[in-house]
């Protein structure tokens, strides 16, 4: 098993935004361009300054050469729509 420190390149065309109610939604596409099945773990958090307003963890296995849509809804809530949403991606060989 190998773990990449940061496989953020596997995450393509992602969005993360707050609705009018301050609820945050994340959507993105994981692309496995390798020749092996991979299990991706997305950790997404919304922060305002140093304070974490919410977070989520998405684990998705993507076959070799394939892609997968991933999303998370209402995983964080802020006052208004201000905040920083940042995902990190780690990957390991699918078992």
């Amino acid at each position: 098993m190998s773990t990449s420190l940061n496989a953020i390149d596997a995450l393509q065309e992602h969005t993360c935004a707050a609705g009018a109610d301050g609820q945050w939604t994340f959507k993105g596409t994981l692309v496995n361009s390798s020749d092996k099945a991979k299990t991706y773990t997305l950790a997404i958090a919304v922060t305002v300054g140093a304070a974490v307003q919410g977070h989520t963890l998405i684990t998705e296995t993507v076959q070799a050469g394939k892609s997968a849509e991933v999303s998370a809804e209402n995983f964080a809530k802020t006052t208004g729509q201000a905040g920083t949403c940042e995902p990190v991606v780690s990957v390991e060989d699918a078992s």
């Binding site: 940061n6 950790a43 977070h55 989520t56």
Partner: peptide
Amino acid sequence: SSSWVGWDENMWYFATRA
């Protein structure tokens, strides 16, 4: 843990974010 619950800190997240 394979989960991230409540006020726990995901140290991996804070180590690998930008």
